[in-house]
Design a protein around this nucleic acid. Structure first.
Lengths: 177, 177
DNA sequence: AGAATCATGTAAGGGGTTACATGATTCG
DNA sequence: CGAATCATGTAACCCCTTACATGATTCT
């Protein structure tokens, strides 16, 4: 299984509750995720086609009298497994907290999935491991630029950890079955 | 003038002190920016070629007896102008602080450019404008996910502003002519 | 009358990646 | 003897974006 982009999983997630056609997926992402995850319409159809070739989704054509006919997609067991593996896996990089991790939390709530708290805790562990690696860098370095860079990283990681422990954990606790 | 990627400007910046060939640029970026900005070797040569077509740099071939011959690049006035405009312009998005903005500060120090403090202040203004837009979002919203999302953004921006005002400003103050 | 909605796509191009090719030299 | 350094590139592929095409319907 080759590595997939988060967009694939976001699309899979919107199909978990039941079948939908492309246009519906688009509108759902625009309204529910409001800027948390953007997919252009053209890219959406490209991805759906590729995901069907890879067996993550299947589609059937549905004729309509007035409107153009739709292609309705639903998730296969393979697709469902891929989504579940993704949604329970913490993101590896700090930069992915901003969007991808928050999207995962969205789906925990949207789909009433269990284990949101487990994910948050695993994510905290992952980020704390990164924090350790930054701490290893000597602080009283002669290179002022590197000090600035590591200062940024250290502060940022601290801030994100606080968010994870306070707001994300609260969210996971409240809004997940 | 079409919008360029930061990588273009980073390459231009390394050429400001004097001419260099591709391999030298590569090693400089690896050592001095240490992970703050990555360019793969293949991409570097592609970019240099395109930048020459666009008139930002010029190259001449330099034969060597033993080693393969080098192409030595230097910046044109056009390229210098483009770099200076870039380095003095605050980044428009929060996500660009992480790498691009820090790279700018690097060049202020590396090239002993004036105006680092001015950039930091302009950047603070730009980020504070974004902060205002986030503050406009109603807080006691019914949608728990949006609250989480905006909570994240608000906290993150706060943390970044603190870094800008404390560490980045100090750096700009100390290490710029 | 013009804009937005519904609905699905193709085409072109931009920016990036990894893998590969070449070929001598010097270091461990 | 094998690995790293020096030095420049090409090829294939990936993901994404914008622009464009179609064509009826409903809202303003």
């Amino acid at each position: 299984m080759k590595p997939r982009t988060p967009t694939d999983f976001v699309i899979l997630g919107t199909l978990i509750p039941g079948e939908r056609h492309g246009y519906e997926i688009m509108r759902f992402l625009e309204s529910a995720l409001e800027g948390a995850w953007r997919v252009s319409t053209s890219q959406l159809y490209v991805l759906l086609k590729r995901m069907e070739q890879e067996g993550l989704v299947v589609s059937r054509s549905e004729a309509q009298d007035i409107r153009p006919s739709k292609r309705v997609f639903h998730v296969t067991p393979l697709g469902r497994d891929a989504f579940e593996a993704w949604v329970n896996r913490p993101v590896p990089h700090v930069r992915d907290l901003r969007m991808e991790f928050i999207c995962k939390l969205f789906f925990f709530r949207h789909l009433s999935l269990p284990g949101a708290m487990k994910l948050v805790l695993a994510q905290i562990d992952a980020i704390e491991a990164l924090q350790e690696r930054i701490r290893k860098h000597p602080k009283g370095e002669k290179d002022a630029f590197l000090n600035l860079l590591y200062g940024f990283k250290a502060r940022n990681i601290e801030c994100l950890l606080r968010w994870l422990k306070e707001e994300a954990a609260t969210f996971a606790d409240k809004y997940s079955s």
